[in-house]
Write a protein that binds this DNA or RNA. Structure first.
Lengths: 204, 204
DNA sequence: GACCCTGGTGTACGGTGTCAACATTGCTCC
DNA sequence: GGAGCAATGTTGACACCGTACACCAGGGTC
């Protein structure tokens, strides 16, 4: 057995992703991961400051997986649709993709929404990919004429709040054990409700 | 010092509530709590099956505190308002009370939204008090004529998703470090947006 | 007074994250 | 090609955790 591992950092992240898929962040133990990779516990400290750093590294990968899932759903939209309908479909896809991923991959989702505490989003580096997809979808909706420009500001927070809240309620919360059909129907309803609130004339 | 404690269970919960206020659920350690109360670690096991059970017991108290905060906010609504405006104000108070509590008392909030996994809400015993407040507010809005009865079903999930999502985003999520004024403004905007989506005519 | 139930104590086990000191390897430079 | 060195691994230890097991103090009841 070779003394050096080759790429221990990558191996730990890969194994972390594997076990976190079903076990969530709690399954990412220093000793467990190093054991699975076939290395002594402290070897990990050559690549990660502490457990938290390792978890965050795995979380970044999970965030990419979430973004991929959302993009895949966006790609499934029929290309020959009128602009507004297309933009609306894309916005819906962003939300429903988020929700579907949360339910299909709870462990990964738990990681994906983990945030390192280094100020507001976008302050250090670009926005996280899933959030950027939402911003793009909203901008596209404005460009297509499906949303008045005056109502664009802060719309991302309304959307993200609803979608994220629904995802949380149906994974960790009280709707955890509801059957898939019910949850899917509710997801559509909930997403449509925010979009309705966004697009219809209001007070502010 | 008397051999028997008197009411160790209550003492543990009280101390738990005290430390969880700033430390969240993670601060609820068997050894820490028993130490603080002046008792041996294993004494707790006469009253709680395991750590999880203790945390859930404290969580129940926290849930009551959340409900109290929401009720206090509801009580602050001007009594001489037209019925619809009053009902709307009450619904808003439910949402904003939830959000405000989440931000003012993160530790307690983290506990309050903890759910034991015993089926859907209401299946075993009554609904949690905070959720019941939401149901009541929605029903009252229908009674006052502010929401068509046809649109009442499932409305609670749209409301709860948005409000809970916003609470999560502003406590654990990316808006964690935004200043209070900004968050307060966004909270109103977001809550109003769902209500708008609920009350204005839609597709379904 | 003998009994047991309730609610505490002490000790111990296996687990964790992490620190400090040491060993091994491959790369670089004279 | 050998010396030196940085990178990367290992071993051992520490403090801490949740918890199982055996034991014991006190109060209530027959």
């Amino acid at each position: 057995m070779s003394y050096h591992h080759g790429d221990l950092r990558a191996a730990l992240i890969a194994e972390g992703l594997r076990v976190a898929r079903t076990g969530g962040a709690a399954a990412l133990g220093m000793r467990d991961l190093t054991r699975a990779v076939g290395v002594s516990p402290n070897a990990a400290y050559r690549h990660f400051a502490d457990r938290r750093a390792l978890v965050l590294a795995v979380a970044l990968e999970a965030q990419d997986l979430l973004a991929d899932a959302m993009r895949a759903r966006i790609a499934g939209i029929s290309p020959d649709l009128p602009p507004v309908a297309s933009a609306l479909g894309r916005l819906r896809a962003v939300g429903l993709g988020y929700i579907h991923f949360a339910r299909a991959e709870r462990g990964w989702f738990e990681l994906a929404i983990l945030t390192r505490d280094d100020g507001p989003p976008g302050a250090n580096g670009p926005f996280p990919a899933p959030f950027q997809l939402l911003l793009d979808a909203l901008d596209a909706l404005v460009a297509a004429g499906g949303l008045p420009a005056a109502r664009r500001p802060h719309a991302e927070w309304a959307c993200w709040s609803t979608v994220h809240g629904f995802a949380d309620l149906t994974t960790r919360g009280p709707m955890r054990h509801h059957d898939t059909a019910t949850v899917d129907a509710l997801a559509s309803y909930v997403v449509d409700t925010v979009i309705e609130g966004l697009t219809s004339g209001g007070t502010t």
